[in-house]
Design a protein around this nucleic acid. Structure first.
Lengths: 170, 170
DNA sequence: TATTGACAGTTCTAAAATAGAACTTATGGT
DNA sequence: ACCATAAGTTCTATTTTAGAACTGTCAATA
């Protein structure tokens, strides 16, 4: 697969993966949410090569996730800050952090704790249904084709059949 | 950076990225949640090379996200199914899909719609605070070092200082 | 009995991405 | 004049990935 075509796939996950679906992009975004903004600071805190960092920042700007704003003239220097589109990635970052907190921490415990300024308490993120407010689980969700669905699924008929039977048998 | 060491980083995001932070793993997991379970079905629906697919499945099994269970003897064949640890990735997948739905869809609209069986309605996922139930935004969250925090941050002093000032100035 | 097909991989080479270090350009300070 | 800061760019060596072909096991079929 050419990764350039990923963003045109008729799948919202694939398109998002085109933007954030590599290791460095997610780590760069974590730093953004921790208020890192400058080239050398990203480089120092992540240990990423300068080449890759330049490349990834360019990509994130191209996708409208980050914006370059000048913080000094002569020589002209820029900071990278999150756009609204970038800020909207917060639930993704938080759910990734939360999964790591639950399943990947060692004996020392969590590296970071999160305080919700609104209520003043340490919290975990919970994903709920926009309609009824109940926490979501994979098994309580049913998927329907939407208006942008592909006509012919790339999933083989045999696989589709098996998946369908499996879904019906639950 | 050697990616083998990523899972030992004192950062829950980095550790999770070690598991799911590459393009194919996320796409494979999407298929898992759509009830794809077999090698050739993954291969056919994703177009991934067999080599990479074998490698990624092995990795996901090693991390305890998938489990191989036999579905026939002679010849012995296995299916890959999500463990509880794997099912817990659902909020990550859903938040990625949702961001794509908001920011990456084309004129045709969403490829998939989600129905919450519990309430019967089409929904979007919303991330809320476990303590007060309010929707979360990056700006309403404050970060504290936890018990597993690294002693000396890899973030340079200069960057830390700038970040701190930025945080205080809000 | 020989042949075909399904399934789950493995092996091979060429192309692409990444790591790691050095280099460039512009400017300000001592 | 010399050094430091900042934000990149360029270079080669290594690693990863793409793409296709091949292997092994068994069941069903001719």
């Amino acid at each position: 697969m050419k990764w350039d075509t990923l963003e045109e796939e008729p799948c919202s996950l694939a398109r998002t993966v085109a933007v954030i679906g590599d290791r460095w992009s997610l780590l760069i975004l974590r730093e953004c949410f921790l208020r890192i903004r400058r080239f050398d600071d990203f480089q120092a805190s992540l240990g990423i090569t300068r080449h890759l960092l330049a490349d990834r920042l360019k990509k994130l700007v191209r996708f409208g996730v980050l914006r370059k704003i000048p913080y000094q003239e002569a020589p002209k220097r820029y900071e990278y800050i999150l756009t609204q589109k970038g800020l909207d990635l917060y639930p993704i970052i938080m759910s990734i952090v939360h999964w790591g907190n639950i399943h990947m921490v060692d004996a020392r415990g969590r590296p970071l704790l999160h305080e919700h300024k609104t209520c003043g308490k340490m919290f975990d993120p919970v994903m709920v249904c926009s309609e009824c407010g109940e926490p979501l689980s994979a098994k309580a969700v049913h998927v329907h084709p939407g208006p942008g669905a592909r006509k012919s699924s790339p999933v083989h008929a045999s696989a589709r059949e098996r998946a369908k039977r499996a879904a019906e048998s639950t």
